[in-house]
C-alpha cells in the first residue's frame, strides 16, 4: 500500500469535508447570500448574535448542524473501525455491543417521563449507552474468556432484550410523543446547538485521541488474540480499554443525535481500501470520511424535508448502500 495512495486519499477526504461544509452552509429553504454565510460563520465563532436573518439561519441552524454531523459521523466511523478490529468481525459496528439498545431504552424513558426535554434526553441516552455496553462486557466474561464470539453473542442477546423493553415503553409514551421518540431512534441531527457542541467537541476530541493512542495495539490485535498476546500485549485488558473508549465515544454522540446507522459499519471498510490496515491511518481517515458522509447525507435529507419525512438515518443507508456496493466491488 503506497504512501502516495494514502496521501491522495487524505487529500480527497479533506476536499470532501470542505465540499460537505459548503453544501451544509449554503443549502436550505431560507434563501441566503454568500455574505449571510460569511457573517453567520463569523457570528458563530465570536458568539455575537448575527445581524440579518439570513446570517442567523447560518449561525444558529446550519453551522451547528454541520459541526454536529461532522463529529457524529467521525466518531461513529472511528469507533466502528475499532470494533471491527477488536472483534475480528467485518460486520461489527459501533452499536454491536449494547450501546444502541441501552441508548434507545434511555432515550425512550426520557420521552416517557420528561417528554424528551434537554438535557434529560441526552443524559439518559448516554447513561443507557454506557450501561448497555457495560452489561454486555460483563455478561460476556461471566464464565470464561471474553472471546469476540462471546462478546458479539451477548451483544445480540442484550440488544434483543432492549428491543422488547422499547416496545413496552413506547406503549406507555404519551401518544403525541411517540412519533418524536421514533424519530429520535432513527437519528436526528436537528438538535444541535451551541450548548451541545460545547460539550461534544472536547468529549469527541478526547475520545478520538484516546483511540488514536491505541493504534499500535489495535494493529497488533489484527493478528488475532494469541499472536497479539505473544507480542507481549495484555490482550484482555487492551480489549476492555479499546471497547470501553469506543463505546463511550459512540454513547456520547448517540446521546445528541439518536441512532444513526450505516456510517460506523461501512466507512471503515471503504477507508481501509485506500489506506491499508494501519490504525494510525484508518482512524483519522474514518473520522474525516464518516463526518463528510454524514453531513452530505443530512443535506440530502434536508432537501427532501419539505416534501416528506426521511430521517438522516434512513438516508445514510439509502444513498450510502448503492454507492458503497460500487466502491467495494472494485478491487483495491
Amino acid at each position: 500500500m503506497g504512501g502516495k495512495r494514502t496521501a491522495h486519499f487524505f487529500a480527497g477526504c479533506l476536499a470532501l469535508t470542505a465540499l460537505s461544509g459548503i453544501v451544509a452552509l449554503t443549502l436550505g429553504s431560507f434563501p441566503t447570500t454568500l455574505s449571510d454565510v460569511a457573517h453567520g460563520v463569523l457570528a458563530f465563532l465570536t458568539g455575537n448574535p448575527a445581524g440579518s436573518t439570513g446570517a442567523r439561519v447560518v449561525s444558529d441552524l446550519r453551522l451547528p448542524r454541520f459541526l454536529l454531523g461532522l463529529l457524529t459521523g467521525g466518531a461513529l466511523a472511528a469507533s466502528g473501525a475499532v470494533f471491527q478490529t477488536v472483534l475480528t468481525n467485518p460486520l461489527a459496528d459501533p452499536y454491536i455491543l449494547g450501546v444502541s439498545g441501552g441508548a434507545a431504552v434511555g432515550s425512550v424513558v426520557a420521552f416517557v417521563v420528561g417528554g424528551g426535554d434537554w438535557p434529560l434526553l441526552q443524559l439518559l441516552s448516554f447513561a443507557g449507552a454506557a450501561l448497555g455496553a457495560l452489561a454486555v462486557y460483563w455478561l460476556a466474561g461471566v464464565s470464561g474468556r471474553r472471546s469476540p464470539g462471546r462478546l458479539i453473542l451477548m451483544g445480540v442477546i442484550v440488544g434483543a432484550l432492549m428491543n422488547a423493553v422499547i416496545l413496552v415503553l413506547l406503549a406507555l409514551t404519551p401518544p403525541g410523543k411517540v412519533p418524536e421518540a421514533l424519530f429520535w431512534l432513527m437519528g436526528d441531527l436537528s438538535r444541535g446547538g451551541r450548548n451541545s457542541l460545547v460539550i461534544l467537541i472536547p468529549l469527541v476530541g478526547a475520545g478520538f485521541l484516546l483511540l488514536l493512542a491505541l493504534s499500535r495495539g489495535l494493529d497488533v490485535m489484527l493478528l488475532g488474540d494469541e499472536e497479539a498476546a505473544a507480542t507481549g500485549l495484555s490482550v484482555e485488558s487492551f480489549k476492555g480499554i479499546a471497547v470501553g473508549v469506543a463505546s463511550l465515544l459512540t454513547g456520547t454522540v448517540v446521546a445528541f443525535t439518536g441512532l444513526i446507522g450505516f456510517v460506523g459499519l461501512i466507512i471503515p471498510h471503504v477507508v481501509r481500501r485506500f489506506t491499508g490496515g494501519l490504525h494510525s491511518r484508518v482512524l483519522p481517515g474514518s473520522f474525516l470520511a464518516g463526518g463528510a458522509f454524514l453531513v452530505l447525507s443530512d443535506a440530502f435529507s434536508r432537501i427532501l424535508q419539505p416534501v416528506g419525512l426521511l430521517p438522516v438515518g434512513a438516508v445514510t443507508a439509502l444513498v450510502g448502500a448503492p454507492f458503497f456496493i460500487v466502491i467495494l466491488r472494485r478491487r483495491a
Binding site: 439561519v57 424535508q305 419525512l309
Partner: peptide
C-alpha cells in the same frame, strides 16, 4: 413547512 415532528425551520 414539512412534517409535524420535524418541520423545516428555515422554511
Amino acid at each position: 413547512v414539512g412534517g409535524i415532528v420535524d418541520p423545516d425551520i428555515e422554511k
